[in-house]
Design a protein around this nucleic acid. Structure first.
Length: 801
RNA sequence: GGGAGUUUAGCUCAGUUGGCUAGAGCAUCUGCCUUACAAGCAGAGGGUCAUAGGUUCGAGUCCUUUAACUCCCACCA
């Protein structure tokens, strides 16, 4: 028996505990018969609060896990947390008001662990509260020893294969975070600045070259000036020297195709490094590296009187001095896009230090091929991946001058500088606290300098398939699980997580990491405005939503819309879910009173009963077809539409048969019972994917005693019998339409629906079918006399008031 | 500058390989306390499917044009 009212507050907690206790969602390692379906769940970055966007994206993947489980798969659904690296450091620094570089490394990492553990618990609790069905025994942390080991093993594998190198090469640098970053960590920001037109006087001449720049603070690092070789304006100057304003040293005028005639004045100063083009010229022409800005974003000694100033202060001071000295021709305001570090919004700089890089530029064709081998849902998202691969400019810089993360398993020989790497069996290793086991193989030296940098957090996140599948730890598991079935994530991390994982998987094993990839959209606060934790504009806290609407309704909301599309958050959509949840409970309660104690047996079905079952099976086909394309929302739409039709039309029509067998006959009741039993059970199982709590509550209090099993989530969704008659579908729909017309007439007459009607003439093209449903129609609409003929109109006689 | 997506009712969105009169929820309006649900039910109004052309017996759906919005990437002299 079901309680009269459903209390989600107590019910949800109860079943969450129950599922954990019974291990309902556990991956069955011993099972040899069920096919495996494995999901490479995104480990959320532990860098603050989980917002509604996470819930949205994670729930969509979670529906797939439940669906596959209920389709007979042995589902491997782990959950991880990305709790190392720069994002975590920034969180800790903010939360504790400390700076990593102001204290010993060990002290800082200890604080990080504390903070991380607190947040990880919060995260986990939230995912449990939303009814996530991950197998928590498969939980991993990117900062854990196991993950560190896999990450370091990955590094060593690439090192041995020559796919990672240590070199002094231009790398992107964040002066706020004081570390190198990768191209994928940039985002663009629109800023207002000025274009400054400067005079570069030609040596031994009164003539000057006009050069436009947005960054005059780089003057001290100027190496040369480029003009286009075809630029007639400057041909006579090529080969001559010009004097750098304010600094009065001379640089040559050179030609290069990359200097575009129609940009600025057509003459451009090359500084090391003002932008990416400068790095190309630096390599091509073997220019001198001149450092204008230091690691913290302040001007170096080279800048002379501006040394120590922040680069922007220096820019202003320099512009003033240029004005004073008559070297500034003019200024144009300019709005342009600049690259900033996505974590802190600081404008990116470029510098030259020794860094570790993974080769990503040399296998572009392979990256594209691997992308083709994976099926993308929705398909158009693959364009973003291809676009990213196409536009890669730099190898992947993986060294970070930070503290809390996976260390490089690397030392350098103090005497000869030789790179010494750890042995696989000694991993994980922290080179700061241990030494290599052997002397330097090159010079025999025994003094070592540890690599103090840590790995980019993505260098570890990109081996989640290897962590999950026990790469180099348990070959049997690895071979069984790889490639994984599904990678789900939102579209913002295609260029990082997806791309890097494909790179790693290819270098390690030559294979694609997954068969399918499912890309979800974003929740927008309003058009064009992301809900983001860092910007702190989340209007809706997931916990508050769960409290106000229940986890099931919140989950329902995440299933609306179609895959890959951004949606705008609005709580009015939650009302739909509330309505559905309510209806599901009430309908179950109602239907159950007629099937309690009933055991399904073969019956001769009445026409509307057969229609309903055929309708269910047709819906089931659509449901599966959508779900197999990961369209979880569209699948639910099919189910939901069927359910409302079941309640509003079918149940209304057969109600009388169920209530009054003495009038309509025992056989008519049994026919309806058979349908109610099977359709309700069938729907509950399918709804269990979306609303696991209320469906479990219903199941445990109704069908469980008949069907068995410890939980509804252990059952499989299925069709009902072999009711596949497509011909009957429009016939039953016709009956519904006829009933609807009669309802309409009552509504227009403003009388109660139970008002009796003297006489109704029905014209239909399905005379036989409708005649066979005569009793159902007269019963539900309280009709005294009915006349069914071939035709199209429905004539409604007098109401008996 | 390159690429992708979107444009359907007042609002938020469905609409599959082209196929009866283009759907749902919310909102509005009109009724109904009907032995599950008034947090409910039954109805009604509301759409030139962004635009202009084309293919077709037939186009919201396919092709081309234009426009607007969003996103990704590049440029950042």
């Amino acid at each position: 028996m079901l309680d009269n009212k459903y209390d989600y507050h107590s019910s949800e907690k109860k079943w969450q505990d129950f599922w954990q206790e019974k291990g309902v969602y556990k991956f069955d390692r011993e099972n040899q018969t069920k096919p495996i379906y494995s999901i490479d769940t995104p480990p959320p970055t532990v860098s603050g609060k989980i917002h509604i966007g996470h819930i949205f994206s994670y729930s969509q993947a979670e529906f797939v896990a439940r669906y596959k489980r209920m389709r007979g798969y042995n589902v491997f659904y782990p959950f991880g947390f990305d709790d190392n690296g720069l994002p975590t450091e920034l969180l800790v620094e903010k939360e504790r008001g400390i700076k990593a570089y102001s204290m010993p490394r060990e002290e800082f990492t200890n604080i990080c662990m504390e903070v991380v553990n607190k947040y990880v618990d919060e995260f986990k609790n939230l995912f449990i509260k939303i009814g996530n069905s991950a197998d928590w025994s498969l939980r991993y942390h990117t900062v854990s020893p196991d993950a560190q080991k896999t990450s370091q093993m990955s590094f060593l594998d690439l090192y041995k294969k020559g796919k990672v190198y240590y070199a002094e090469a231009p790398a992107l640098w964040c002066t706020k975070c004081r570390t190198a970053i990768a191209q994928s960590e940039l985002e663009t920001k629109e800023i207002e600045t000025t274009f400054n037109h400067l005079k570069f006087f030609v040596e031994n001449s009164d003539e000057y070259l006009e050069i436009a720049t947005t960054r005059p603070e780089f003057l001290c690092a100027c190496d040369c000036v480029f003009v286009n070789p075809n630029d007639e304006r400057y041909k006579h100057l090529v080969g001559k020297n010009v004097r750098v304003p304010l600094y009065d040293f001379y640089v040559p005028i050179m030609t290069d195709d990359k200097a575009e005639m129609d940009k600025g004045t057509g003459a451009v100063m090359c500084c090391t490094f003002g932008d990416q083009t400068d790095t190309q010229w630096y390599k091509k022409y073997n220019l001198e590296y001149k450092v204008a800005i230091d690691d913290a974003g302040r001007m170096t000694e080279r800048a002379g009187k501006y040394a120590g100033m922040k680069s922007k202060e220096a820019r202003e001071a320099i512009i003033e001095d240029l004005k004073t000295n008559g070297l500034l021709i003019g200024q144009d305001p300019l709005v342009h896009q600049v690259s900033v570090h996505e974590r802190c919004g600081t404008e990116m700089e470029i510098n030259l230090k020794k860094q570790w890089f993974i080769k990503t530029l040399e296998n572009k064709d392979e990256w594209r091929r691997k992308g083709d081998e994976i099926t993308w849902y929705p398909a158009f998202m693959q364009a973003r991946y291809n676009d990213w691969v196409e536009n890669l400019m730099m190898d992947w810089c993986i060294s970070r001058q930070k503290y809390f993360g996976v260390p490089f398993p690397v030392w350098y020989c103090k005497d000869c500088g030789e790179i010494i790497v750890a042995d696989n069996e000694d991993l994980p290793v922290n080179p700061i606290s241990t030494n290599p086991k052997h002397p330097c193989p090159k010079c025999g030296g025994t003094q070592f300098v540890p690599e103090t940098d840590i790995l980019d957090t993505w260098a570890t996140s990109s081996v989640t398939p290897q962590i999950n599948c026990k790469w180099n730890v348990d070959d049997e598991t690895y071979n069984k699980l790889m490639p994984m079935s599904l990678r789900p994530n939102a579209h913002d991390i295609i260029r990082t997580w997806d791309f890097y994982t494909i790179v790693k998987s290819f270098y390690h094993s030559g294979i694609k990491p997954w068969d399918n990839i499912m890309i979800s959209g974003f929740i927008m606060a309003s058009a064009g405005e992301k809900i983001s934790k860092s910007k702190n504009n989340a209007k809706s806290d997931p916990l508050a939503l769960i409290d106000m609407y229940s986890a099931d309704v919140t989950r329902y909301w995440t299933a609306t819309g179609s895959l890959g599309r951004d949606i705008i958050f609005g709580d009015e959509q939650f009302k739909n879910g509330q309505r559905l949840l309510n209806k599901l409970y009430n309908a179950s309660k109602f239907v159950w009173q007629f099937v309690e104690g009933y055991t399904p047996k073969d019956v001769e079905l009445l026409p509307m009963d057969k229609w309903l079952l055929c309708k269910f099976n047709a819906m089931f086909d659509n449901f599966v077809r959508y779900f197999d394309k990961y369209e979880v929302g569209l699948a639910m739409g099919e189910l939901e539409a069927f359910f409302w039709n079941f309640c509003d039309n079918y149940v209304e029509i057969v109600k009388n048969r169920l209530y009054k067998p003495e009038i309509y006959g025992e056989k008519a009741k049994e026919s309806a019972q058979f349908v109610c039993y099977n359709a309700l059970l069938g729907m509950l199982k399918m709804f269990a994917i979306y609303m696991p709590h209320v469906t479990e509550e219903i199941y445990q209090n109704t069908f469980k005693d008949v069907v068995g099993g410890i939980s509804i989530h252990k059952l499989e969704i299925a069709k009902i019998g072999d009711y596949e008659d497509k011909e009957i579908l429009p016939m039953g729909d016709e009956v519904v339409a006829i009933v609807s017309k009669i309802r309409q007439s009552k509504s227009e007459a403003k009388v109660s629906l139970k008002t009796e009607i003297e006489n109704v003439n029905i014209g239909t093209k399905y005379v036989d079918f409708v005649k066979a449903c005569e009793k159902d129609i007269t019963a539900v609409m309280s009709i005294k006399n009915i006349n069914i003929t071939n035709g199209t109109d429905v004539e409604i006689g007098n109401f008996i008031l």
